[in-house]
Design a binder for these strands. Structure first.
Length: 448
RNA sequence: CGGGGCAUAGCUCAGCCUGGUAGAGCACCUGCUUUGGGAGCAGGGGGCCGGGGGUUCGAAUCCCUCUGCCCCGACCA
């Protein structure tokens, strides 16, 4: 993609409404534009990031055996009356009326809808277990939206729902999602830490928040330092095997958010030099809730013994749009974003320092062709802006690699490559640079 | 939902107190000079000064009202 033909409205100054760095950078790089409080348009650069995150999430859901569906954003109030939540949910739920004066709502979540779908589609224990997920926009009318897409009112969320015959079987479904989450966040370039979360009326140990550490995180978290280093399960993980030993590696050490924090236990269980007390961002939440919805909504299957039994359910959320902000929080510097390859809007940026010059134009055209043939997503700055501005813009939008083509080094048949994360630069012959970059990008895609 | 603040060009802001019909920097357009880390000069385009009402000969400015947005606190992927 050529910048001269792209839509990239970068801002040199930081809009005053943005408080935290991810919000500032998302506005400055032209990733998003606020439409109204907590509601954003996703501009080309941001849209690419969002789609890449979504795709990683999708791939890991599929790998774990979950099945994708798509439920609507608008739901009927009647459905929510069946579960009893219509009156409970409060003002966070955006309520609407259609032309027939029927009560509708913009879905803040989908337990009711999925339960209805599953109930009407499945009658036998032989159809269990199943896990259905979708990636869809939700709306929660937060009293006070803030931090850009990190806590918007409209947000893109992956939510999965598992259905099992027994609570024991549900634990295995839960564990599958647990592993899928670890892998998803790792692939996004994040170190996520599962932390014990409130299980509500069900009780038990089956609820975890997945937290990533970031200075500007919203919640205070505490955990054992070893958890940050624990190796994430590989792509070859057998999701039909018993995953509990694997899970135990992540749940045996202390980890808790502020609400669940037990200072005495923390100090007793974690050696002083292993105690992490930091800020964190919640990017995922998994939860087992048994028959909370299947009971009132009569979602039952016939068991082997011929008896009807309410299915055991769990739900599993990932804040997809929030992740765009969270990744920036976890990966940026004073000059701008630093995108990990798997979610970068483009995998590399090509800078023509002297657009209009035969030599540099020609070299850049050659490079574009090489990158296109290699299947690399590149953004080519072919504008006649000054060098300083191009460097600043490229650093700001934070593509993982930069290729700099200027008349000076090109005289020797060389170009410069720069790794955004480290700032490391190398001057190389053109073809050598191409093969090195293609290799680096391809291997970075495979991460985890 | 309580408390506070703001609303003037795409962005950052001045002007408002003390009314006289709109400004700067950046961005944008034209030309020249520049050209390896956000250049310089000259010229130019762009604003129902958030909406409505009022006071006044005259309102960005004073008064009333509505709306939007931001920040602090209580709640959330």
């Amino acid at each position: 993609m050529r910048i001269s033909r792209y839509f990239l409205p970068v801002l040199r100054e930081t809009p005053k409404e943005a408080e935290i760095v991810s919000h500032q950078l998302m506005l400055r790089t032209g990733m998003v534009k606020q439409a109204s409080a907590g509601i954003y348009s996703w501009l080309p650069l941001g849209f690419r990031v969002l789609k890449k995150i979504e795709q990683v999430v999708r791939e890991e859901q599929n790998r774990s055996g979950a099945i994708e569906v798509l439920m609507p954003t608008i739901q009927s109030a009647d459905l929510w009356r069946q579960s009893g939540r219509y009156d409970d949910y409060g003002k966070e739920m955006l309520r609407l009326k259609d032309r027939h004066e029927r009560d509708m709502l913009y879905g803040p979540t989908n337990e009711e809808l999925i339960t209805e779908i599953f109930r009407d589609g499945v009658k036998s224990y032989k159809d269990l277990p199943r896990n259905l997920y979708h990636i869809q926009w939700k709306f929660r009318d937060e009293v006070r939206p803030r931090f850009g897409v990190m806590r918007g009112r409209e947000f893109l969320m992956k939510d999965a729902y598992s259905f099992d015959l027994t609570a024991d079987a549900a634990r295995q479904s839960y564990n599958r999602m647990f592993v899928a989450y670890l892998r998803t966040f790792a692939r996004l370039g994040l170190k996520s830490i599962p932390m014990a979360a409130d299980t509500g009326p069900i009780g038990g140990d089956l609820s975890h928040e997945f937290i990533i550490l970031a200075d500007t995180g919203e919640s205070q978290v505490y955990c054992h330092a070893d958890l940050v280093q624990t190796t994430v399960p590989g792509a070859d993980t057998d999701f039909d095997a018993d995953l509990s030993p694997l899970i135990a590696r992540f749940t045996s050490d202390y980890a808790a958010t502020d609400e669940k924090h037990d200072a005495a236990r923390f100090e007793k269980e974690v050696p002083v030099d292993k105690r992490i007390s930091a800020r964190g961002i919640e990017v995922g939440h998994i939860f087992f809730f048994g028959t909370k919805y299947s009971d009132p909504m009569n979602c039952r299957v016939q068991g082997p013994d011929g008896k009807m039994v309410a299915v055991q359910m769990g739900s599993y959320g990932i804040g997809v749009s929030r992740l765009a902000g969270a990744i920036i929080e976890a990966s940026h510097d004073k000059d701008g974003c630093i995108w990990p390859v798997p979610v970068a809007p483009f995998e590399l940026g090509l800078i023509n320092l002297k657009a209009g010059d035969k030599e540099t134009d020609g070299a850049c055209d050659t490079l574009c062709e090489r990158f296109a043939n290699a299947g690399i997503d590149y953004l080519y700055d072919d504008t006649d802006e000054r060098a300083g501005g191009k460097f600043a813009t490229m650093d700001l939008i934070g593509l993982p690699y930069q290729v700099i083509v200027g008349p000076k080094s090109l005289k020797n048949g060389e170009i410069e490559i720069k790794e955004r994360r480290t700032g490391m630069r190398q001057t190389l012959p053109l073809e050598g640079a191409v093969s090195q970059l293609v290799g680096a990008i391809r291997s970075a895609r495979q991460l985890a």
